[in-house]
């Protein structure tokens, strides 16, 4: 496209591992005072990426 660059195409409709609960809880990483959900990674996708890179 000439006028637009789409940065990411993966969208929320990808629910392959939805709701499994294996990801980190939100407050455990660094914050403790503010909720930051979207900086948590999906543990399953992380594992999948590692496997794909082997």
């Amino acid at each position: 496209m000439k006028n637009i660059k789409t940065i990411n195409k993966k969208t929320y409709s990808d629910t392959t591992f939805a709701g499994c609960g294996e990801c980190r809880s939100s407050c455990q990483s660094a914050c403790k005072t503010s909720c930051t959900v979207a900086n948590q990674q999906c543990e399953n996708k992380k594992r999948l990426n590692k496997d794909n890179n082997k």
Binding site: I7, N8, K10, Y12, D14, T15, F17, A18, G19, C20, G21, C23, S25, S26, C27, Q28, S29, A30, C31, S34, C35, T36, V37, A38, N39, Q40, Q41, C42, K45, K46, N49
Partner: peptide, 26 residues
């Protein structure tokens, strides 16, 4: 930390809707 956002391998939509999990899973 607060600018971390993973647009490709971020959390599933359930987590995004449910939020922090305090009082439940935490």
């Amino acid at each position: 930390f607060h600018f971390n956002v993973d647009l490709e391998a971020g959390p599933c939509v359930y987590k995004r809707v449910k939020g922090c999990g305090a009082g439940c899973e935490y």
